[in-house]
Design a binder for these strands. Structure first.
Lengths: 191, 191
DNA sequence: TCAAGTGATGGGACTTAGTCTCATCAACGG
DNA sequence: CCGTTGATGAGACTAAGTCCCATCACTTGA
């Protein structure tokens, strides 16, 4: 395991975020990112499959956590309770350090179509993972779809609130899901 | 309004879909698409902003239809009924001709991450449009979010069924929304 | 102590997406 | 018949992303 300066990957992430904030995503080249990290373009593409991905690292881990969170929930509980377990499961990745960088990261993503595209795909991946995991629990295709979609909505809303208020993501997400669940219920009769 | 061979845009769409099916999306270059359409790369990029967009034409129109469908719904009806009006409004774009090309188009999209990404962004755009339109009706931020997300889910599910069975999209989508609505209701107590 | 192996990196050639600018050509109005 | 307009062609250019090979740091085993 040869190594010169360690943490090449993290250095690339930091360099990218800094540059994107300083001069914008579009005005930043991969070569520039690599250079600031003390590396080259070749090395960049060994760590990230494209220019966007440097902002979306570690989301594969989230997929696994969501899946195992749902599958690991007690067999007796319903789909939404299983989704809640999934939200709690991913909370371990929402660390202080992540919170520190999140505002800048979100600002960059929000300002670039190319990045919002990647973000949308990641969210769709979350929904897909939760749906598949729910199906494994014997939940119907329709119920799994609805529960997963409400789950993703809760993640999005919970994340937004976490950005503002901080605190324990598990608790924030739990409240967001409850909120969404009640809204979905009350939507029924409202004419 | 000078014109040589008419319908350049449609020719590009057809050429692209054919080539993507014949040799795959990744193995097809924009220059190839343009050449088969009897045009050049320059002209291609005047009609579509990138290589992906040739498969997603006319979705701006859908945004307008969704928005006006929701805003134009009777003021007395609830969020989900307004969403239903939006689904009915977009049905005019789901023509026989579109149905004919849809299977091949879906197959290409499903097989390429880059295209699934664009698809996810479009769906997120639908949700955003519906949410904003609902907000204009005075619907709360939370309720608008939930109703819009359920609406997009209904569009997705309705579209899948329309691909298989054909028929009137308005009716199919209406049924899909009703289905989703009932599922969301029954999800509440299920333990 | 040194030689071979391994894994991460550097470097450069190459293809293609996408932008930009300028020339051209067909239709249309007067 | 001429000037304008709008769509196209052509080609230069930048940067993303791929590929291949050389190189260097570190490890392992004799």
């Amino acid at each position: 395991m040869g190594r010169w300066e360690p943490d090449a990957r993290e250095r690339l992430v930091r360099a990218a975020l800094d540059l994107f904030c300083e001069q914008g995503y579009e005005n930043t080249s991969v070569a520039q990112i690599a250079e600031r990290a003390g590396l080259t373009k070749s090395t960049y593409f060994r760590h990230f499959r494209d220019k966007r991905e440097v902002l979306f690292g570690g989301q594969d881990q989230l997929l696994e956590l969501l899946t195992s969170g749902i599958i690991g929930a007690p067999p007796s509980v319903g789909p939404l309770a299983a989704v809640e377990a999934a939200l709690v499961a991913i909370a371990v990745t929402f660390t202080e350090e992540r919170l520190a960088n999140a505002p800048r990261r979100q600002a960059v993503i929000a300002g670039t179509d190319e990045l919002r595209e990647r973000d949308a795909l990641k969210m769709a991946g979350f929904a897909r993972a939760m749906k598949d995991a729910l199906r494994q629990r014997g939940v119907s295709e329709l119920d799994a779809d609805v529960a997963a979609e409400l789950g993703v909505l809760a993640v999005r809303r919970g994340f937004d609130r976490w950005l503002e208020d901080g605190g324990d993501f598990a608790e924030v997400a739990r409240r967001a899901l409850e909120e969404v669940r009640v809204a979905a219920a009350e939507l029924q009769g409202a004419e």
